[in-house]
Design a protein around this nucleic acid. Sequence first.
DNA 1: ACTTTATGTCAAGTATATTTTACTTTTTAT
DNA 2: ATAAAAAGTAAAATATACTTGACATAAAGT
Lengths: 70, 70
Amino acid sequence: MKNLKLKAARALMDMSQKDLADAVHVSRQTINAIEKGDYNPTIKLCRDICRVLNKTLDDLFWEEEEDETV
Amino acid sequence: MKNLKLKAARALMDMSQKDLADAVHVSRQTINAIEKGDYNPTIKLCRDICRVLNKTLDDLFWEEEEDETV
DNA sequence: ACTTTATGTCAAGTATATTTTACTTTTTAT
DNA sequence: ATAAAAAGTAAAATATACTTGACATAAAGT
């Protein structure tokens, strides 16, 4: 599912996907994929993103239970 | 760095590393490695662990800035 | 003392996060 | 209307999370 909270937090800081990608040292496609929601970043990357956007893990990366079919 | 908060939260629920591993469907070694701190789980696994231990991401997986030498 | 359960650690393999290159579409500005 | 910047998407390659199997030590129970 899409991570709209991340997209909003980024917008609030007036950063493009590329800007954020550069700030946390990953590719633009990685940020795009996270916002698109169809994958599963590492906690370290999540923490880096939170620091840049002045948010917490709970703010941006908590999700209610979902059918995470194993 | 060691994740002592995770270790403590697990102790509070009276679960062994194996118990927790089974509950979140990973190997015992993965839990051990996370507590030992020398790696970087995915956000999905972190969320699963939090749900089992009744904690939040901020409770267990926030860390203050550290020299994460890229 | 002995047995069992929990923890720590390592090496080799598998699954998947992330990169790179590339192309298309949307949005914003001139 | 046109150009430039931003966003969406995909395939192939690389890096690394996670597994499996194995062995050693520590702690807890009998």
